[in-house]
Amino acid sequence: MLKSETKLILEVCDLHANVEDQPILNGVNLQVYAGEIHAIMGRNGSGKSTLSKVIAGHPAYKITGGTIKFEDNNLLDLDPEERARLGVFLGFQYPIEIPGVSNLEFLRVSTNARREYEKKEELDTFEFEDFVQEKLKIVKMDPAFLNRSVNEGFSGGEKKRNEILQMALLEPKLAILDETDSGLDIDALRVVAAGVNKLATPNTATILITHYQRLLNEITPNYVHVMANGKILKTAGKELALQLEKSGYDWIEQISSNKEENQ
């Protein structure tokens, strides 16, 4: 791939982060260019979800070293809402239920916050309803869910569809999907994957965090990274995911610890 011609969207350099004084990220390096799809795999507790939350700006994590650049912006200087308005989107592993807050109202307020930054016209209630109807088709979601409280009483699959709906409305430049496939049956997985594929463009980038090869059958990544102990241990093409499916993570961690010993 001729990287010099494509635009660098995200650049993570030697990122270290703690939660409650416990180091979770220990020097992550990652570059994501426009038009690319990256998959990050790894055992539970390897730091995948933390990386995604740190990029989105979760206040529970303390950055102890390194930088995150998003286009020309230093993300670590920005609040979560500012990052979102720039075009960073995090699809949550466990979308939060917010009783009493209407899903439609939530979607409208967030869409307008992003549109305002993009210097697009604000959508009033009626315009937004038309806009959202179009986007519902992408995730094949029942419009009845718009009138409920945010994620309240949604099944696992409905919550994930709602995440992809938000992605469709916000039109992010970088979408990080944290285990969007977990808890989905095969049909729902296909719908969600088709939505992600539809929303990926040559000007945007996607990072998929997943445990399973089956999502990568539906969405083909350019790169697969393996994380362990808060670092990216290995990066390769999509064939790495197949190899992991067959042989697990032991062999990679083995190679890596051998390397460290030799050094």
């Binding site: 700006g57 979560p80 809402e81 308005r85 989107f89 917010i98 967030s110 916050a113």
Partner: peptide
């Protein structure tokens, strides 16, 4: 809950 809303561009 606050982080979820803020991660969608809604200020605190």
């Amino acid at each position: 809950e606050l982080f979820y809303l803020r991660s969608r561009g809604i200020d605190s």
